[in-house]
Nucleic acid binder design. Sequence first.
DNA 1: CTCGAATAATTAGACATGAAACTATTTATA
DNA 2: TATAAATAGTTTCATGTCTAATTATTCGAG
Lengths: 164, 164
Amino acid sequence: MSCEVDETEYTSLVASQMLYRWIQKAYVLFDDYDRRSLERFQLNTSQYRTLLLFENEEGKRLTTISDRLLLSKSTITRVIDELENRGWVERVPDPEDRRAQRVVLTAEGRRKRLEICRAHQQALEDVFQRFSDRQQEDLDRLMQNLCQSLRLSISSIDPIESDF
Amino acid sequence: MSCEVDETEYTSLVASQMLYRWIQKAYVLFDDYDRRSLERFQLNTSQYRTLLLFENEEGKRLTTISDRLLLSKSTITRVIDELENRGWVERVPDPEDRRAQRVVLTAEGRRKRLEICRAHQQALEDVFQRFSDRQQEDLDRLMQNLCQSLRLSISSIDPIESDF
DNA sequence: CTCGAATAATTAGACATGAAACTATTTATA
DNA sequence: TATAAATAGTTTCATGTCTAATTATTCGAG
């Protein structure tokens, strides 16, 4: 436009920003892959991950599910609504706290969970078969470290949040 | 309820499912951390990542941005709308293709990008300072491998999609 | 024991996103 | 060259999510 010199520059990306991009990308691809592997069950990722939590016969509070999946309580309310509509789970009153509900799988829910779990497991194997055992362990450990570091950094911004 | 034996069992999680959970968790935490570090600029993650792409003075097509960020074209339209409202970018007609537009940073946009980039870089350093150089390299390489493997698995479900 | 603060779950409202339909233009093919 | 298919971008609509407000119940300090 004019002949003034513009002082602002373009910055190029440093290593941590490249890494950040790869993490983003991996997640988006994973999400897409999940969506595709789960669509034949008419399940979204949150519904699936909720179902996955029921590894035993224990009833689970909605708040517990929310904490474990890092999804808001209102999201979990709706996820459970939908699973309940399908007859896969039931809400039962919590004997210890009348504010709370316990979500439990029905017999049908257990059957479905098993079927879907196996299919998704298959899909995961397909992705991770291309990794050596060593690489899988490394990845697992690094992800745990990353989670821990993120929690530390998050709580240093906002000292309120500190659980999980 | 009754005394029938229920054949369905609960499955416990195998290694790849645990890994899957850690990746999910790391992403959610990262997203949360991002949101917090960017909120003082009134930017969401997509707006930020779009801004980040402008490493040089080259104009970029919306489709290119969409491909690079793995966000839909309609999302990018809206992101660019917002950035244009703020006066940080401009749409200019593409001289080579009259269907296309080139998005370019304004002087103000370059200033803002620099400022925001630096702040976010700071935030990333804070997370990754807890990793050794070796760990960062490992993580970077593993994420790239994961992306590649996911692309292979995705394209084996649906042979249509194959670029990026 | 009581009353205010915290907590479990739900609901209402806002926002970000993707899929699909649409318009304008370009590319490829017959 | 005419026409069909592909592509760039926008708009519309449905979905999934979060925040904040709400109700019911429990916890805890005095």
